[in-house]
Design a protein around this nucleic acid. Structure first.
Lengths: 343, 343
DNA sequence: TGCACCAAAGAATACGTATTCATGTCCGTA
DNA sequence: TACGGACATGAATACGTATTCTTTGGTGCA
């Protein structure tokens, strides 16, 4: 592998001139620049990343801490993040915090291996990790928020999302409401739930079942518990789509028609939600916009902007499908508005 | 951030001694080592990754080129790769080759930003990229193979997997066989297909429908075409699970019972295949073992082992579920054997 | 006692780049 | 013609580590 010195030699100039010429520095004669570029091309020269990183103390790497890759929304986020970062000339290093390797992110931060970190699945539980990292590097949260972490945070409005579902149920005349949710650690879940409960404010309190994982199997189990209630729900809001799919299948398996006897609504609009086998009514988050904002904020911090931490909350939108049967007019109007707002 | 020189100063030794003491070099007095370690701890010293990379020309980063993150098998592979690499003290940099950024991998290779590269979704189509990278770095393929790339390759035996499905159909007395497949570029698909066709050798040639993408929607479309045939199949092998799920739903939607009127078999055993709504018979690949072998081979290359390129083919196993109805005895025995063999 | 040898630690260096500092040239103006 | 200044380029340096080269001090043997 050729070095900038080799290029310099071939072009008949000094190493510093090569550096200047190739980095578009002003004050380099056009003729010299051409000669250097030609020599660089001939030698297939590419600046060494490690040397450049050492000199500039910038690696061009961004760490992304993710989790729950079995929930398709996270791979989707990862893909969008990868694209967005690459367009900004940055590389993506991925850590999965399901494994016991959260420490790997902190290590990389300490070693200067990354210039910034994006969390997609932050919770209060990893506050130690956050503090460890944030004192050295810019940190941005996307998807979830955590109180008490003074960093930029981008989410969608899960609270409003929950309220929209409650309003949809109410307007459709559903009275026996169920809530199927999971652990409350993620802010997304907490906010969806409080928004939903708040939206149900006028009527009777929803029957709530809390399962211990956000999996298909847990969703099925939870639904069985709801269906066993004396006052069986006629509409169930599930805290995310994976739960909702499990819930729907459990209902069908129990001979309870969906949407005939019970409506089911999920959250996230993962690809599967639109599959004809499920055709699940759900709430869609503007993931792409969230990711774009997150990368934008991170880059601003990396550039040294020292503003107060920002918290962005983007609108979510109800997507009505067959798991809630026909669309009552008022709800239809609502959903349309929401869909348009989310564009 | 403290440097090794700071540690040296605090411990009252030279910088070189610090380096030796912390890297477990022999020939350092126990007392000195202790003093250095104490100083390093006090200063929260961590070696700078860029400097170390420059000095050793080793970055500790491995690039992973993936694709089709909408097919859950790839996130799964990614997760396993991340875990395996981390256990080896390596970081994972991810590129998604669906986007137009294959070049990013080559760039990183040229810049010395990674020590090796793993492809999970290689095809003949990216031969230029491969050649670009392979002349500088060790490359390992996992999941797919490509003729003419002289590098280590780890796959599961897709050919045998296809044969197993054909044998299963034959033993169960299925005679009107369908094959629902997609683009032939990936070796996985080609091998599954040829194995399957070979296995069908005795009987009539399967009706084949080829769709243009490995998506749920394409699977549904393809199934509609198969069902419209004069001689409608009573068993369909789909080249992967996502296609199979689409196919199953299209059949149901058309009022064709699964498995009553038509059997459906997929490939990959993604998480969804075992969901009760689908309960799909499929072929399982030993992904975890494949990933472990891939990382092992890559590390051997990185250590400078100069053996001939190795090609590993691990056994796949039929997993029988409800989409093929009751299990005929002989097939049951086969499946059991296969399942045991894959452990 | 003197000398050769070994172990342990310090001093010096190289990795490849970006940047600061030094040098020389050319041009315009007094 | 002389001089100051702008400008283009070369020389030197720093980044932080791992490693090679030197030095020092101690030990064993003759």
């Amino acid at each position: 592998m050729a070095t900038s010195r080799d290029v310099a030699h071939r072009a008949g100039v000094s190493q510093s001139t090569v550096s200047r010429a190739l980095s578009g520095h002003p004050g380099v004669t056009e003729e010299i620049r051409r000669r250097v570029q030609a020599a660089a091309r001939d030698l297939a020269y590419v600046p060494n990343a490690a040397a450049r990183a050492m000199r500039t103390s910038r690696s061009g790497n961004i760490g992304v801490v993710t989790a729950r890759l079995h929930n398709p929304i996270y791979p989707e986020m990862l893909q969008l993040l990868g694209r967005e970062l690459r367009q900004a000339g940055l590389r993506m290093i991925v850590w999965n915090s399901d494994e016991t390797d959260e420490g790997a992110a902190a290590d990389a931060a300490r070693q200067g291996m990354v210039d910034g970190i994006i969390f997609t699945s932050a919770t209060q539980a990893s506050t130690a990790l956050y503090e460890e990292i944030a004192q050295r590097l810019p940190v941005v949260l996307v998807n979830r928020t955590v109180e008490g972490w003074p960093c930029d945070q981008v989410e969608s409005d899960n609270h409003a999302g929950g309220r929209i579902v409650a309003a949809y149920f109410r307007d459709a005349g559903r009275r026996r409401i169920g809530l199927l949710s999971g652990p409350l650690l993620p802010s997304t879940i907490r906010n969806r739930e409080t928004g939903f409960l708040e939206g149900c404010g006028g009527g009777p309190a929803p029957a709530t079942v809390r399962v211990d994982a956000f999996t298909y199997a847990a969703g099925a189990t939870g639904m069985q518990r709801l269906l066993a209630l004396a006052d069986r729900p006629d509409a169930v809001f599930c805290a995310n789509d994976v739960l909702a799919l499990g819930a729907r299948d459990a209902a069908r398996a129990a001979g309870i028609a969906v949407p005939g006897a019970v409506w089911i609504v999920g959250y996230d609009d993962i690809a599967m939600a639109s599959w004809t086998a499920f055709d699940l009514t759900t709430v869609r988050q503007p993931i792409e916009a969230m990711v774009q904002h997150a990368v934008r904020l991170l880059r601003a911090r990396m550039a040294g902007i020292a503003a107060a931490p920002q918290r962005l909350s983007l609108p979510a939108a109800l997507v009505v499908r067959a798991s809630t049967g026909r669309l009552p007019p008022s709800a239809a109007a609502d959903a349309d508005r929401q869909l348009i707002a989310s564009k």
